[in-house]
Write a protein that binds this DNA or RNA. Structure first.
Lengths: 145, 145
DNA sequence: TTAAACCTTCATGTACGCTTCAAGGCAAGG
DNA sequence: CCTTGCCTTGAAGCGTACATGAAGGTTTAA
């Protein structure tokens, strides 16, 4: 399939696919006799993997390091594992930060007064109450906003 | 406290604090007679809030919209709630994407052979088995990388 | 009084991750 | 033959979120 079809299939722009190839996030793509890219399912799978990891916040650079290790045929198992673990730790921390922010916003949402007469001081008090409840006190609670 | 101390206290660079003020992510900061910023705990709390939301992937632009609504004294409750809900939805999706990627990497990690003799085909089979197990099959499984 | 160590504003630079543009080639249809 | 529509490469442009540098002011301490 040509690059446009691959783009439609994956939701990744043609330019981005070329960019991924240039950055070695996906393997070198086969060409037709006239030099056009001829994309198969293996490439599609790689593009999807890249998309998933990018969505999870993995940088192009880290993704390239990771993929290089896999593509090298030497026994890189240890390095691969430690790279995987590293990345997992980063992503888990990210997820937890995200969850904390979600909790924070949910709390705000659930304590909205219908006519919003709450003062900053009251909101701070509410925050404090919450902080105590979830045992996650900050040195300085936030400002009601 | 001066901007350097605030920077040390929050882990946010002085330049970034000035930038946040200029972008109205934090309120206008009081000045000393000579024009230096004099930062109090209220500002520190705002900076921390900004930091948390930034870490959760909220853009400067959305954060500014959100804070503007709060700082305006009109009754914006409805808009505030819907903005909050919008942002929550974005963050929850982000969290779920992240979790999916974590699951994916964890799976890879747990199926590593100690001497990595696995072929691509075997890896694909493993992926498939996993996909079946968690009932999250992709149209095209990824490529073992 | 002179240097260090802060601060200010304003302008420009930087990194990332693409997107868009320019210039051109190939193949099919009218 | 010419337009349409796909493709190619390389280079330049762009938005975000700051970082850095220039030019200058103030306070403290030797």
């Amino acid at each position: 399939m040509n690059i446009k079809e691959a783009s439609e299939k994956t939701g990744v722009s043609s330019a981005a696919i070329r960019y991924y190839e240039k950055e070695s996030l996906i393997p070198a793509i086969d060409r037709t006799p006239v030099g056009n890219r001829d994309i198969d399912d293996r490439i599609i799978r790689r593009i999807r993997f890249v998309t998933q990891m990018r969505a999870a916040g993995m940088s192009i650079e880290n993704l390239r390091r990771y993929i290089e290790l896999f593509d090298a045929q030497e026994d890189n198992t240890k390095e691969q594992k430690s790279l995987l673990k590293e990345q997992l730790a980063v992503m888990e921390e990210k997820r937890d930060d995200l969850q904390a922010a979600i909790d924070h916003l949910n709390y705000k949402l659930n304590h909205f007064y219908d006519h919003m007469e709450t003062t900053e001081a009251e909101l701070r008090a509410l925050e404090k109450e919450h902080a105590d409840k979830v045992d996650h006190q900050e040195e300085t609670p936030d400002d009601g906003v």
